[in-house]
């Protein structure tokens, strides 16, 4: 049943607006742009120092939630506690690692009034880094060759096949370009320690980095797709500045992905365009990216559209967006009294 978008209460995760930012604050900004000040935003945080907790004009109230490793029961218990106080209408998760639990809980959350618009567990698994090459081969998408490895020694096999440089990627996050075997081993151990096994060793593709933020309706259609060329890239490979571009091939790729996967919800395609103009899918992120506010600025407010979809409202396909819209991210020292910090640290809500 559809619901009016006035006075909505929307819960958002990913408030870690740091140098490798979660998408939460950008999602909230897009929602406030379209749905106005009448909405109430509930932040859901894992750590006391997630900067979004303290951005008062964006987040009305924040609750800490258990880490994904605590499992669905702990998360559901916490969500019930929060729901008794907040009456949340829609929840938008923004971290890869938490999606598994939220997808499993989607029906239980709906039973207490919390709507989501998420992919299935199968869809989530298909685009996983470990399965991405197979997914690409099945649907005629170009994906760089890779080896999924469990031992350091297996790097030799990958290097023999691909040569250097090659890309060493963690199971969930982070990737390093290794110029030689020393760097490859170092990257392997760094990623192993942080994210566990397996590690993905991928062939290096030289080209231009372009990302596409998209919204799939779950029926094989992409309702919105906005392409962004990275202009400034941090040492963690994140776009710190970017510009929207218009390229029919990129939009066709997004449409083909939605069709092949019947993707439901927000997604991001990380693309490398090589010298010949071939488009390689480097990764598929199962959620909105941190630069998602640019979609709203360019004329396709994807987070607001997702809220409407979650509430069962009809959303028409966006037809165009403005190319040449740029984002230039910046860091800001937010001043906070320790009493405010104490609320979240001691009581788990602020």
């Amino acid at each position: 049943m559809s619901k009016n978008t006035d006075h909505l209460c929307i819960a958002v995760t990913g408030l870690n607006a740091n140098d490798n930012p979660g998408p939460g604050i950008a999602v909230i900004r897009a929602l406030r742009d379209e749905l106005g000040d009448k909405i109430r935003i509930i932040g859901l945080a894992y750590e006391n120092l997630e900067p979004g907790i303290f951005i008062g004009n964006q987040v009305d109230k924040t609750y800490k939630i258990p880490y994904p490793v605590a499992g669905t029961e702990a998360l559901m218990n916490r969500m019930i506690y929060i729901q008794e106080r907040e009456n949340i209408d829609v929840l938008i998760p923004n971290f890869d690692a938490e999606l598994n639990n939220f997808i499993k809980l989607a029906e239980s959350l709906l039973a207490i009034g919390i709507h989501t618009f998420l992919p299935s567990l199968q869809q989530l698994a298909n685009r996983d880094k470990i399965n991405l090459k197979k997914f690409g081969d099945q649907h005629q998408f170009k994906v760089p060759d890779d080896f999924v490895i469990h031992k350091e020694a297996e790097i030799i096999k990958a290097a023999d096949e691909f040569g250097y440089p090659l890309v060493v990627k963690g199971k969930f996050y982070e990737a390093y370009v290794a110029q030689n075997s020393n760097e490859a081993y170092k990257s392997f151990h760094k990623l192993y320690a942080k994210w566990g096994l397996p590690i993905i060793v991928q062939k290096f593709i030289k080209g231009t980095e372009i990302n596409i933020a998209g919204l799939g309706d779950g029926k094989g259609n992409v309702l919105s797709a906005v392409a962004m060329r990275k202009l400034y890239i941090t040492d963690k490979g994140k776009a710190w500045a970017g510009v929207t571009v218009e390229d029919e091939d990129l939009l066709t790729l997004a449409k083909n992905f939605a069709k092949a996967s019947s993707w439901k919800g927000g997604f991001e395609l990380e693309i490398m365009k090589d010298d010949k103009g071939d488009l390689y899918i480097m990764e598929i992120n199962p959620r909105f990216p941190a630069w998602i506010y640019l979609t709203a600025a360019a004329g396709q407010n994807q987070p607001a559209a997702l809220v409407k979809l979650a509430l069962g409202q009809q959303v028409s396909e966006f037809k165009a967006y403005k190319s040449g819209k740029m984002f230039i991210r910046y860091a800001w020292d937010n001043i906070v009294d320790v009493e405010e910090f104490q609320k979240i640290a001691a009581f788990g809500e602020r």
Partner: peptide, 14 residues
């Protein structure tokens, strides 16, 4: 896209 002051933008590539 071009401007009078000589700025050129290629919207296909950024």
């Amino acid at each position: 896209a071009t401007s009078e002051n000589g700025f050129i933008f290629n919207p296909s590539t950024g």
